[in-house]
Amino acid sequence: MDKLKLRTSIEAARSSIPDERRHAASVRIRESLMDRPWVQMAGLIACYWSIGTEPATHGLVFALWKHGATVILPVLREDDDLDWAVYDGPDTLAPGRFGLMEPVDTRRGVDAVRTAALVIVPALAVDASTGVRLGRGGGSYDRALARVGPNVPTVALLHDGELLDGVPAEAHDRAVRYAATPDGIVRIPTDA
Rank of each mutant, 00 (worst) to 15 (best):
7 R>V: 10
23 H>K: 14
61 V>T: 13
30 R>I: 00
152 V>K: 02
150 P>I: 12
71 V>F: 06
16 S>K: 15
17 I>L: 15
142 D>Q: 07
179 A>I: 05
6 L>V: 10
103 P>Y: 09
151 N>F: 10
80 D>S: 12
156 A>N: 11
174 R>K: 15
181 T>W: 04
83 D>R: 07
14 R>F: 07
58 H>K: 12
140 S>I: 06
31 E>P: 00
146 A>H: 13
36 R>F: 00
40 Q>K: 15
41 M>E: 15
181 T>A: 06
40 Q>C: 03
189 P>N: 09
17 I>F: 01
97 R>L: 14
100 L>E: 01
45 I>G: 05
93 L>N: 04
113 V>G: 10
159 H>R: 06
140 S>T: 10
92 T>N: 07
90 P>Q: 11
63 A>M: 04
162 E>W: 01
48 Y>C: 08
23 H>R: 15
138 G>S: 09
99 G>M: 04
25 A>L: 01
31 E>R: 14
22 R>H: 12
4 L>E: 14
47 C>W: 00
131 G>K: 08
106 T>Y: 03
75 V>M: 04
48 Y>H: 13
52 G>E: 09
168 P>A: 12
175 A>I: 00
25 A>H: 13
153 P>D: 11
81 D>K: 13
92 T>P: 01
72 I>L: 03
142 D>L: 07
167 V>L: 08
119 V>A: 08
151 N>V: 03
74 P>V: 09
180 A>F: 08
141 Y>I: 08
185 I>P: 00
42 A>Q: 02
94 A>N: 02
171 A>Q: 13
29 I>Y: 12
74 P>S: 09
108 R>P: 00
12 A>I: 01
6 L>R: 10
114 R>S: 15
163 L>D: 12
130 T>M: 11
184 G>W: 06
151 N>I: 00
112 A>E: 15
9 S>M: 12
14 R>S: 05
32 S>C: 11
170 E>K: 07
189 P>W: 02
58 H>W: 14
13 A>Y: 00
24 A>E: 15
99 G>S: 05
33 L>P: 06
52 G>Q: 02
184 G>Y: 04
42 A>M: 08
192 A>K: 03
99 G>Y: 03
41 M>K: 13
73 L>G: 10
62 F>L: 14
166 G>P: 04
78 E>N: 08
135 G>N: 11
137 G>C: 07
138 G>E: 06
10 I>H: 07
118 L>P: 11
147 R>E: 09
2 D>L: 04
55 P>I: 04
165 D>C: 03
136 R>W: 11
134 L>C: 07
125 A>M: 09
34 M>V: 10
188 I>K: 06
68 G>R: 08
166 G>L: 06
81 D>A: 15
85 A>Y: 05
76 L>G: 01
118 L>N: 08
27 V>F: 00
1 M>V: 14
103 P>G: 07
